[in-house]
């Protein structure tokens, strides 16, 4: 099975884990599957925060059933509170 490289920039509460996470997943993985893998990298209360967060590219938020067939540069956006 082909593996693809996922690079995820971290924001907000995820910053304490660094600027970004890098890992591989099988091609054809969904956003939901990537979040599950990511939750295994993240320790503590932020582990469950992954599932209240969304993944996005530089243009848009991606729905949970979005499928990745190639390497991707993404970011994870935890719940927002601007102003």
């Amino acid at each position: 099975m082909t593996e693809i490289a996922i690079h995820i920039k971290l924001f907000g509460a995820f910053r304490k884990f660094g600027d970004a996470l890098d890992f591989s997943v099988p091609a054809g993985s969904t956003v939901a599957a990537i979040k599950k893998v990511m939750s295994e990298f993240i320790k503590g209360k932020e582990s469950t925060l992954v599932f209240d967060s969304v993944l996005a590219n530089d243009n848009a938020v991606l729905p949970d059933n979005y499928i990745f067939e190639a390497n991707a540069k993404l970011c994870i956006l935890p719940p927002v509170c601007g102003g």
């Binding site: 907000g12 509460a13 910053r15 209240d52 967060s53 969304v54 938020v61 991606l62 729905p63 949970d64 956006l77 935890p78 719940p79 927002v80 509170c81």
Partner: peptide, 13 residues
């Protein structure tokens, strides 16, 4: 402390 906020999950849906 990072403050809790409004999840963008609904926006994604």
């Amino acid at each position: 402390e990072w403050l809790p906020g409004h999840s963008l999950m609904a926006n994604a849906a």
